[in-house]
Design a protein around this nucleic acid. Structure first.
Lengths: 147, 147
DNA sequence: TATTGTTATACTCTATAACTATA
DNA sequence: TATAGTTATAGAGTATAACAATA
């Protein structure tokens, strides 16, 4: 008996645990958060535009596993709040590039703090080894989502 | 420079990564799943009733970080599908206990497999050390959600 | 013909509010 | 008066369908 998952059944158990636990964490996090904050996909869009620069609706939809129509709706909200702005694509007249506004840069910095306050406090209570596991797992979870 | 988070800022970064990555994974998982499956909270309810036995609406709501009204609605759906059944509480006439039906036991076994098929495949591609990190992290994430 | 984006509509999940019944 | 549950309504987030513009 070693620590590695050995069978499809063990992987299935692990996957069930992972998905139910993460679903619960996100529900909890929403319950603990003041509701006029930005949603997860909205924060993800700000992060992506901040890190990678301007991007089109279709690019962002692919990156965040959403349909382009849904991404369009979400971008329209962020635009209405003044956090992103439209730019014409230099060569392709169909595309619209979205970029962070100055206000969007500021929102990215500030508003994610409110959203995460509860989780920061909860994570601060873990010991350093446990925190390291979660940090390593975050990178793996991102890879799974992107794969 | 060691591996442990040392400041509030490092914890904030870690928390942002964790929440955005998990939110993306759950979106992706939904996109990859045939849509007539059970939702996450529905699967969580079946798991909890299967592991811990019958429970009331209020108990389940607390356990899954939902409002009792929302839990009531969700339980009503599961009842309509024949997966859970009502029982009177032995001593408290206000409470209703919910329990898995035989069909619910079966659903718990079968339908979560369909829901998780994609993630099992993705996780199977990780190496054993990475799988172990995710398994350890799942338990921590559950603790964070319950805390 | 394929791709990008928009608009309209609908569905899922969860919340809030108002109510009834029991403790 | 406090707690458990129900019903009605609303909101966020995302999907599908139908369409227009550009490649």
């Amino acid at each position: 008996m070693n620590q590695a998952p050995k069978s499809a059944e063990m992987l299935e158990t692990a996957v069930t645990e992972l998905s139910l636990a993460t679903a619960h964490l996100l529900r909890r996090l929403r319950a603990e958060t003041d509701s006029d904050e930005l949603g997860w996909s909205q924060l993800a869009i700000l992060a992506r535009l901040g890190n990678d620069g301007p991007a089109s609706t279709a690019d962002l939809a692919r990156a965040e596993s959403m349909k382009p129509q849904s991404m369009g709706t979400t971008l329209a909200m962020l635009e209405r709040e003044g956090l992103v702005e439209r730019r014409p694509h230099p060569t392709d007249g169909r595309q619209v590039l979205f970029a962070l506004t100055a206000e969007g840069v500021e929102a990215r910095r500030k508003r994610k703090i409110a959203k995460h306050e509860w989780l920061v406090a909860a994570m601060a209570k873990l010991d350093p080894a446990e925190q390291r596991i979660l940090i390593a797992a975050s990178a793996l979870i991102r890879r799974l989502g992107d794969s």
